[in-house]
């Protein structure tokens, strides 16, 4: 372990005094094994207390600290700085309103999630014990349940940027997760919601979401399966 000097460029925006976001440079010295989150903590704790960002679990499961580092959407907590050399450029996720510094407004993101009815819809009576679901049936949705709702995918989606009404990859992935759950009976309702120009059809298989996903979920592939399902359902 050794200390290294790095240069960090952060896109700052303080709503009380800034008219628009601007870049600020910090020259600091950190452990070479630091993560991007360690760097932000160091700046916040030792250099500038006014810096705002979200973080919590530190172990890439809570999804708080998604941000853009050197042009890529990453989770700050799991991203070692050695990936970038000694120059870091940190900015908030694109496509969302900035509330302050690296903190963006996620209310629309979560509201979209609610729209696709993200819960099991059942017509059948509940069994005494569990529903029977084979490992093969579970396999269909297994990877999609890894989603931590960090919003890195939606923030990377060129179709999302100009269309604030587009449901976006995260909500659509959630729709996939329930439509393809062998226990669910609500596929018709959900497919009707996503069968819209602002639903699944706004996805043009650009693959940015997949590249941005810190959980390496094959989002684009699942969205394609969802499209096929919508077409099958409407034929």
């Amino acid at each position: 372990m050794a200390k290294i000097d790095i240069n960090v460029k952060i896109l700052r925006y303080q709503p009380a005094k800034d008219e628009k976001p601007h870049w600020q440079d910090f020259a600091i010295s950190v452990e070479d094994e630091s993560t991007v989150l360690d760097v932000l903590n160091e700046i916040h704790w030792q250099h500038d207390g006014t810096l705002a960002y979200r973080r919590s679990c530190r172990s890439s499961i809570c999804g708080s600290c998604a941000m853009k580092v050197n042009g890529r959407n990453v989770l700050a907590c799991e991203t070692p700085i050695h990936r970038f050399g000694t120059k870091l450029k940190i900015e908030p996720l694109s496509g969302f309103e900035i509330l302050k510094d690296l903190v963006v407004d996620l209310e629309p993101f979560f509201a979209k999630l609610k729209r696709i009815r993200p819960y099991l819809i059942l017509d059948k009576p509940l069994p005494d014990k569990e529903f029977v679901q084979s490992p093969q049936q579970l396999e269909q949705i297994g990877e999609s349940t890894l989603c931590i709702l960090c919003a890195a995918c939606s923030a990377a989606c060129p179709s999302s940027w100009p269309n604030s009404d587009y449901l976006g990859p995260a909500a659509l992935l959630k729709a996939y997760r329930f439509v393809f759950d062998s226990r669910d009976d609500g596929a018709d309702q959900r497919l009707e919601i996503v069968n819209d120009k602002n639903g699944v059809w706004r996805c043009h298989t650009i693959f940015n979401c997949m590249e941005a996903c810190p959980k390496k979920i094959k989002i684009t592939e699942y969205l394609s399966r969802l499209k096929v399902k919508v077409v099958e359902n409407s034929l």
Binding site: E107, P108, D165, N195, D196, K197, N198, G199, V231, S234
Partner: peptide, 15 residues
């Protein structure tokens, strides 16, 4: 939270 996102009511499935 209950913001209503505009649905276009136009399906893109045929296209």
């Amino acid at each position: 939270m209950d913001k209503n996102f505009k649905q276009t009511s136009r399906s893109g499935s045929l296209g």
